[in-house]
């Protein structure tokens, strides 16, 4: 047993810089053939992006990793809500951060975000993690 963390407590930050190889692996693992994720000339010349586009669901998955790495093996993600507010591209660095906003006897609410290196919020999110055997 450990005490619930107090509101305001940060979770450890996670910083990830997805490569074109990672984007391709995620496209393959999700059977996603959208060319903006692996075909740079298509992404740039046809769809007008500056580079290969980092999948929104990959961003959400990376943020979830930060949450569950913090929660440990007894924590279980109960709810995750997120909005895609900005795009991110191959080579961009994603900074995942979060703080505790409320702690109940067996659950913790978190406010989360992915920001890029220009401090733009790409993906604001909230999560609830339950600890059945806290």
């Amino acid at each position: 047993m450990r005490p619930p963390p107090p509101p305001g407590d940060p979770i450890p930050a996670l910083t990830v810089t997805p490569t074109p190889t990672q984007l391709f692996a995620f496209s393959a693992a999700t059977h996603n053939a959208h060319r903006i994720h692996y075909d740079r000339p298509w992404a740039v010349d046809v769809e007008g992006h500056p580079d290969l586009v980092i999948h929104g669901p990959l961003q959400a998955a990376i943020l979830t990793r930060a949450v569950l790495d913090w929660a440990g093996p007894t924590g279980r993600l109960h709810r995750l809500t997120f909005q895609h507010r900005g795009s991110a591209y191959a080579g961009d660095t994603l900074h995942c951060t979060g703080t505790v906003t409320a702690a109940r006897p067996t659950a913790v609410d978190l406010a989360l975000a992915i920001t890029n290196s220009r401090d733009e919020v790409l993906l604001p999110a909230t999560a609830t993690v339950v600890f059945p055997t806290w």
Partner: peptide, 16 residues
């Protein structure tokens, strides 16, 4: 195998 490929693509190597 499928979810481990997905987790590997995320680089989320949680032992669970």
């Amino acid at each position: 195998r499928d979810f481990q490929r997905w987790a590997a693509a995320v680089n989320d190597l949680n032992p669970l």
